[in-house]
């Protein structure tokens, strides 16, 4: 393709659904996490990844495909991603996947990406807000044997030699990296403003769009390669990291009064 006008092929976005962290509670009696009261959302950083994918498509062409590994109830969030502008969505769902840690998760996602094929860019979120720590994107790069770049703020340019210029956050600033396609990028949370789903497109995405679902068989994986069995770590127990008991003294009143109280307080503490 050297030197020809650049037209991108598939731009794949990995997308996860997470409970809102402020609505998740710890049950100290059962030592479990109670998510029953928590609403779900698309993992915030993945929305930024999707937004970046769509804006790349607008500039360089290509097909934006969302891939997710999770339970069937995630389907409506994938439809939401389609309403935002993704061209296609694939949900990988299988009982055998329950309990997967990063190792099988990255294996499954990488297999799915290979099955989709013709990928030029794979965009993930920086990390998942429910406790992931950004290990999935480097892992996908590892399985696919392609470069990965984390903490990406922007894809500045892709030239006709299929070299992309990325901006990556580093301690104290940023760096610009040049990397050939294909690559995996983990997109920084908050680096752009995700667009709202278009109303008419949303209706279409909810009612007519044909979502694909794959199971591990479709990916050529055996049950013992994934889930708890395929994992390299196991959770022994959950504990609450209790916030320290705070005084919780409430101060109200007129600004002048409050400023004075605050002044005394700070002076005593210094």
């Amino acid at each position: 393709m050297k030197g020809e006008a650049l037209v991108l092929r598939n731009i794949i976005v990995t997308l996860k659904v997470v409970p809102k962290p402020e609505e998740v509670y710890f049950n100290p009696d059962t030592k479990t996490v109670d998510r029953s009261r928590a609403r779900n959302e698309i993992n915030p950083a993945d929305k930024n990844a999707l937004e970046l994918a769509i804006s790349i498509k607008e500039k360089y062409g290509g097909t934006v495909i969302v891939v997710s590994m999770g339970p069937p109830i995630w389907e409506k969030y994938l439809r939401l991603a389609v309403a935002m502008g993704a061209d296609d969505a694939i949900l990988i769902s299988d009982r055998a996947l329950a309990g997967s840690d990063t190792y099988p998760t990255t294996l499954v996602l990488a297999r799915a990406i290979s099955k989709i094929g013709e990928y030029d860019i794979i965009l993930c979120g920086e990390e998942s807000s429910d406790g992931g720590t950004g290990q999935v994107p480097p892992g996908i790069g590892g399985w696919l044997g392609i470069p990965h770049i984390t903490f990406v703020k922007d894809i500045i340019d892709i030239n006709e030699y299929r070299i992309a210029k990325l901006k990556r956050t580093i301690k104290g600033g940023y760096e610009i990296i040049e990397v050939g396609l294909p690559f995996v990028a983990a997109v920084e949370l908050g680096c752009n403003t995700p667009r709202f789903p278009d109303f008419r497109r949303k209706r279409w995405a909810d009612k007519e769009f044909q979502l694909k679902t794959w199971n591990i068989n479709d990916l050529g994986l055996r049950p013992d390669e994934v889930g708890l069995k395929g994992s390299k770590t196991e959770v022994i127990e959950l504990v609450e990291l209790r916030p320290p008991r705070r005084l919780r003294k409430i101060i109200t009143g007129e600004p002048d009064e409050i400023a004075k109280q605050l002044y005394e307080l700070i002076k005593n503490l210094m």
Binding site: V24, S231, K232, I236, L238, V239, L241, P243
Partner: peptide
């Protein structure tokens, strides 16, 4: 390993 914003932690072992 802290999760959910850092207020719940999992004790995790490498296998």
């Amino acid at each position: 390993v802290p999760g959910f914003g850092g207020n719940i932690a999992a004790v995790v072992r490498c296998i």
